Simulated scan of single mutants.
Amino acid sequence: MVVVVVRQTSAGVPAAVGGALGAAGLTARLVPLDGGELPPIDLGVVEGLIILAAPHPAGTGGPTLVRDALAAQVPVLALGSGAELLAEVAATGSGPEGPAVELTPAASTDPLFAGPLPAALRPHPAPASLPPGAVVLATARDHPAQAFRLGGSAWGVRFAGAHDSEDETWTGQLLFRFAELVASRAEHTSTRAFFTHRADTWEERFAYQTPAYEAAASRMQLRPGATALDLGCGTGRAMPALREQVGAHGRVLGIDITPAMLTAAARHGRTRHGHLLAADCTRLPVPHRSVHGIFSAGLLDHLPDPPTALTEWARVAATDCVLLLFHPSGRAERAARHGRPLDPGDLLAEHNLRPALEATGWSLDEYEDAPGHFLAHATLAG
């Protein structure tokens, strides 16, 4: 798991940064700005970003990098001039005698800003123009917005320390918390980065599969008024078929962890068929025993912890709930396409899937691994 560290020189990753990342099992990749230039960075192969210096002038790749990281919800920690760049992109000097920097009430629940600040912090004197929705985490008299959070994945820290042991301790704690957060989110970060980059063309690229999605969803045979979930919905190709089954008084939720895919789903009119929600499929914001149908295409075997997901899906399932796992290609077809043989350890192989379902409260009723599709139909056991 790699975290890119943007620094002014090629002198190496600062020891505090490298130590924090290493303790969380992360690898630092230094990107120096010796000539003020920022080389292209593929966010699809990194799990986090620490910006210690901003490119100069600002038009040399920095805004693009920050904008792409915010869009893909790649965790970002921007310090000093990096925080200035973060604030500037998202929205489109004082000496040691300055007022104290203090945490705001919002900081008490922030994953990075826990505990008191050192007393000798110097506020950055320049005004900050933050975008709507930014959460201010630290402020100072006459110098607001000394630290802020954008959404749930990007932080900017503008104030400077007095370089004493107390400040170094606090900065080290901040870096350790950020490294732990990056490590804990690594799987979701890589998924979002992969699909964010492809969201705008996803629907057109795979439009030929839409009839197969509709045919698979129709086999759930949900009753009018039921509640149906499309988990890992992408652009929501199954949602029209689910709506047709549950009728005007039913409920359809399209859930995906990548906001860019949900934006594409809305652009293609899927909000006419149900609601779109950005959420983790292993922690669904759905009440216990409230769902009558769960459709999931190409998701389960790509999750880091499939048993946890199946257990969570059983939690929200009503006693008559139907679970339908689908893929528009069979297992053999997909293996051949990637130039590899069928894997006997594949979760979707019947001898693996059946016990996995049974261990999490499901019973496999139908299993089809045909050349043109994969389909598994399950209901709650007992």
Rank of each mutant, 00 (worst) to 15 (best):
M1W: 04
V2E: 14
G12P: 10
A15H: 13
V17K: 03
A24P: 08
G25Q: 07
P32F: 07
A54P: 06
G59K: 12
Q73K: 15
A78T: 15
L79F: 04
L85W: 05
L86G: 12
P99Q: 11
A100P: 11
P105S: 11
S108K: 14
D110E: 10
A119F: 00
L121D: 09
P127M: 08
T139H: 06
A147K: 07
D167L: 00
G172Q: 03
Q173K: 09
L175I: 05
L175N: 03
A179I: 05
E180I: 00
E187G: 09
S190I: 15
W202Y: 15
W202G: 04
Y213M: 05
E214I: 03
R219W: 00
A228Y: 04
G236S: 06
H249Q: 10
L253R: 02
A260N: 01
T271N: 10
R272D: 14
R272G: 12
H273T: 08
L276Q: 08
C281W: 01
T282S: 13
R283P: 02
L284E: 04
H288T: 15
V291W: 00
F295C: 03
L300T: 13
P304F: 01
P306E: 02
T308N: 05
W313P: 04
A314F: 02
R315A: 01
V322T: 15
L323G: 03
L324H: 06
S329Q: 11
G330P: 01
A332T: 14
R340M: 07
D343N: 15
A349R: 15
H351L: 01
N352M: 04
E358L: 10
A359C: 00
L364K: 08
D365Q: 13
E368G: 02
G372N: 10
F374L: 01
